[in-house]
């Protein structure tokens, strides 16, 4: 659905946020992983028509974002949920959605019914008359996604959706995104690798504006297959991934091409291992 060709973004202060990025984003949930400053937000803002690239181009379903027509068309199919939810705290939930409906050019006859549908989808029908300020953090995130869902967008861009949510809200939010993925492209940017592992079919890893990896989860895990070990001995030349205290003592999870010691056992890598391996190599 989205083709990104040779995309570069240099800010006026000289900071290069993206460097010659090539990426294909298909239908389904697409994960964007990367440390702070990797360029995730810049990339999403360019796709959301908020920023213009310095060079290169983004084409969404045949519409080039360089042209005003392409940007207008993209806005008509876009649902965007920034990290800061961007809600008007003094409006009621219903007013906020109605206002967004007006901005999204939804016909007056359809606004009320669409509001009811999206409120049911995100489970906020009981707080319809409540002022946004009084909602909990999780409810605000759900209201944000409800706003993004108005107008049945084909492209959803969601920045750090589960940051700051409690575990049950996070699971609920992940399930919601999974349900919404049918027939849509959802770009999900996050630091939380578990979210990507649970719901993304494809992902990309960015590092200081460069693309480190692009493909499926399985392909990513293969890159680090056979390299992850758990050992109780102190690590020597290996890179420690994590340290865990168990009843038997301290357990180190390390990267190594060969067994680090006789007691070490090889384990299946997870997404976090693969992510750390790639960024350590970069």
């Amino acid at each position: 659905m989205i083709e990104i060709e040779n995309l570069t973004k240099v800010y006026p202060n000289g900071h290069q946020a993206l460097d010659s990025l090539q990426l294909h984003i298909p239908e389904g949930v697409f994960g964007l992983l990367g440390a702070n400053g990797a360029g995730k937000t810049t990339l999403m803002r360019i796709i959301a028509t908020l920023l213009r690239p310095t060079t290169g181009r983004v084409v969404i379903a045949g519409h080039d974002l360089v042209s005003a027509e392409g940007r207008d068309w993209t806005r008509s199919i876009l649902g965007y949920l920034p990290q800061e939810t961007g809600l008007h705290l003094d409006l009621t939930v219903e007013q906020e959605l109605d206002y967004m409906g007006v901005l999204k050019r939804i016909a007056a006859s359809e606004r009320a019914s669409q509001i009811t549908i999206v409120l049911n989808q995100v489970g906020l029908q009981n707080v319809r008359q409540q002022v946004v300020r009084t909602l909990s953090g999780g409810m605000k995130r759900r209201l944000g996604i409800a706003c993004a869902l108005l107008g049945t967008p084909r492209l959803l861009i969601i920045d750090e959706p589960t940051a700051g949510l409690d575990p049950s809200e996070r699971v609920r939010f992940r399930n919601l995104l999974y349900e919404l993925a049918n027939g849509r492209t959802i770009i999900l940017s996050t630091h939380i690798v578990e979210d990507v592992a649970q719901i993304c079919t494809q992902l990309a890893i960015l590092h200081t504006g460069h693309l480190l990896f692009h493909g499926s989860l399985e392909k990513l895990l293969k890159t680090v297959n056979g390299k992850v070990w758990v050992t109780s001995s102190p690590a020597n030349e290996q890179t420690i991934i994590s340290t865990k205290v168990t009843d038997a003592g301290v357990e180190n999870r390390v990267f190594s091409d060969t067994p680090p010691d006789v007691s070490a056992r090889q384990v299946s890598p997870n997404l976090e291992d693969a992510y750390l391996w790639l960024t350590a190599q970069a």
């Binding site: 803002r45 959301a48 028509t49 908020l50 806005r75 876009l78 965007y80 949920l81 920034p82 990290q83 800061e84 939810t85 961007g86 809600l87 008007h88 967004m100 901005l103 999204k104 706003c147 861009i157």
Partner: peptide
Amino acid sequence: GVEPLMLSM
């Protein structure tokens, strides 16, 4: 964050 949200529409 209101401004970026509005500018996406």
